[in-house]
Structures are given as structure tokens and as C-alpha cells.
């Protein structure tokens, strides 16, 4: 499994928010969801995931809650908070704008 795309600094947060926006996920599932959404083209370094989650939780954008995993084990599931949802929408918009501008500049519109 090669790493096709480097994760831009700061985009990991956005990816996490996106992954969780579709439903509560535990840490490992977040990882898998991102990889799956990227069509297996993006791999997140497992060591970087948790600090990002901690930070988002500390900022109150996501909330962790203990629950049962698919194979009946205790796992911590993350969901978006109201603040997180707002933040996600704003970040998404910003990212779209950015990619549009970058596309224009680089002449590869829509290639992001």
C-alpha cells in the first residue's frame, strides 16, 4: 500500500471531521474511513491520528463517548458536536475555495 498523497498540514483535521460527519466512529475506524474515501490512495500515519483527535476533542469540535465496537469490545466513539459541524462546514467551504484558486493558478482547474 503506497502513499500516494501526503497529507497537507492542517488538512488532517478536516479529513477527520469529514469522516466523523457521516456517523460516530472509533479511532481506528476513522483511519479506515479516510483511507476508503480516498480510494486507498491516502494513508494516515497512525501515530498522528490520536494527537489530532485529542486536540479536536479538547477544542470541543468532536465529542468522545465509550460504546461497543462491532465485535463487542469497549471502544471510544467520536461524534461531531454542534460547534464541530459548523467548523466542518466552514473548513469545507474554505478548502473548496482554495482548490479552486490553486486550480486556476496552476491551470489545472478541477484537478484537486
Amino acid at each position: 500500500m503506497g502513499r500516494d498523497v501526503d497529507v497537507l498540514q492542517g488538512t488532517l483535521n478536516l479529513l477527520i471531521l469529514k469522516a466523523i460527519s457521516m456517523g460516530p466512529l472509533h479511532g481506528y475506524a476513522v483511519l479506515l474511513r479516510i483511507e476508503q474515501m480516498s480510494g486507498e490512495r491516502m494513508e494516515i500515519l497512525q501515530g498522528t491520528l490520536y494527537p489530532a483527535l485529542y486536540k479536536l476533542e479538547a477544542q470541543g469540535l468532536i465529542a468522545g463517548q465509550w460504546g461497543e465496537s462491532e465485535n463487542n469490545r469497549k471502544a471510544k466513539f467520536y461524534t461531531l458536536t454542534a460547534a464541530g459541524r459548523k467548523q466542518f462546514a466552514a473548513e469545507q467551504k474554505k478548502w473548496a475555495d482554495l482548490s479552486e484558486v490553486m486550480g486556476k493558478i496552476l491551470g489545472t482547474e478541477g484537478a484537486a
Binding site: L56, A58, G60, L61, A63, A83, Q87, E91, D97, L98
Partner: peptide, 23 residues
């Protein structure tokens, strides 16, 4: 375009209640 885009900013806002709770 309305807002200038700040590239590569961490850009995560914060929720005071959550922060206090964590602390």
C-alpha cells in the same frame, strides 16, 4: 471572492465550553 484564503492555516476554531471541560 469574499474572503482571502489563508493557506495551510490550522484553522480550527474553538469551543470555550469544551476547552474548559477538558482542562
Amino acid at each position: 471572492m469574499g474572503h482571502p484564503i489563508r493557506c495551510c492555516a490550522d484553522g480550527v476554531g474553538m469551543n470555550v465550553g469544551g476547552r474548559v471541560w477538558t482542562m
